[in-house]
Design a protein around this nucleic acid. Structure first.
Lengths: 152, 152
DNA sequence: ATAAATGCAAAACTTTTGCACCCGA
DNA sequence: TCGGGTGCAAAAGTTTTGCATTTAT
């Protein structure tokens, strides 16, 4: 039950559902959940099913069109930007931000390979703390940012 | 339903269940799942319930006794070593290894704070690829490399 | 034509929770 | 004593899957 490596499909069809899912995901930088994407896509394709959302997100991730992120939660979030980059997670409001300011350090991957002798292909890096908005209100209750946290 | 910041409890009791869970987790470097821990603990406490495992793992994590890891899967793995360190995930066999060879770079956290102006408290870093054993047998069973987003 | 993709619903899995009872400090 | 902890079972939340049907190529 551990998630293994995934192999890209031979060829993948261009379906209306797949196209809309990709457009929705490319059109936000909020790193949404599958269910959030489902709700958005339903505005344009009312009959789409949640299973199709999941199947397509998996296919798109396997083909490098989107990224699946599994930081600090029981559910996945998706990133429409397939380019490797780092993230920042606000542990107060729960939002996930791109952190383009720190460039991806490919040397780090190489160093890990040299240090272990293994085939290290890449790395994932996520920062955490309080985002600008939440840092301002630090010390206050913290449950009052509820409107922001539910991206789903 | 995004996981928020957790505040340590005032004081936590030392119960038989909590003690055994911690011993089991400290006694392995395999970064096990809650269910694996449950099976192990049951050898010594046959009546323990899975709910108690989860409640204690959460409490222990909140108090800095263990770490919860959420890399690349829908379920959590736990690390009995509370000291910050990096990990390596083998995408072939699914095992998660400690990577003590690369020391934690606290400067990275500081750089992210400077770059964003936010309150960056730390970071999580995980490498992925093929471990020594799996690299040897690469290409044997149709499990291809390169499906995940590699560094370029 | 035919293999991939979809919709629907059920199932699988992981994790949380309500509640009565128990136990450690 | 008494509030935290436990066991049990049910529920919640996320993701996967079987199957008949549709659709892209």
């Amino acid at each position: 039950m551990v998630e293994q490596e995934k192999k890209p499909r031979g060829f993948i069809r261009s379906t209306r559902q797949r196209r809309v899912i990709l457009e929705v995901l490319r059109g936000t930088n909020s790193h949404p959940t599958a269910d959030w994407i489902y709700q958005k896509v339903r505005d344009r394709l009312p009959n789409i099913s949640l299973g199709t959302i999941y199947r397509n997100l998996k296919t798109l991730a396997e083909n490098g069109e989107v990224q699946e992120l599994n930081f600090g939660s029981t559910f996945s979030r998706f990133d429409g930007n397939p380019e490797p980059h780092y993230h920042f997670y606000c542990q107060r409001c729960g939002r996930l931000f791109d952190l383009f300011e720190i460039p991806v350090d490919h040397d780090l991957t190489a160093r890990a390979g040299n240090a272990t002798g293994w085939k290290v292909l890449g790395h994932r890096l996520e920062f955490y703390g309080l985002c600008g908005e939440c840092a301002k209100t630090e010390g206050q209750d913290g449950t009052e940012t509820g409107s922001l946290q539910n991206d789903k």
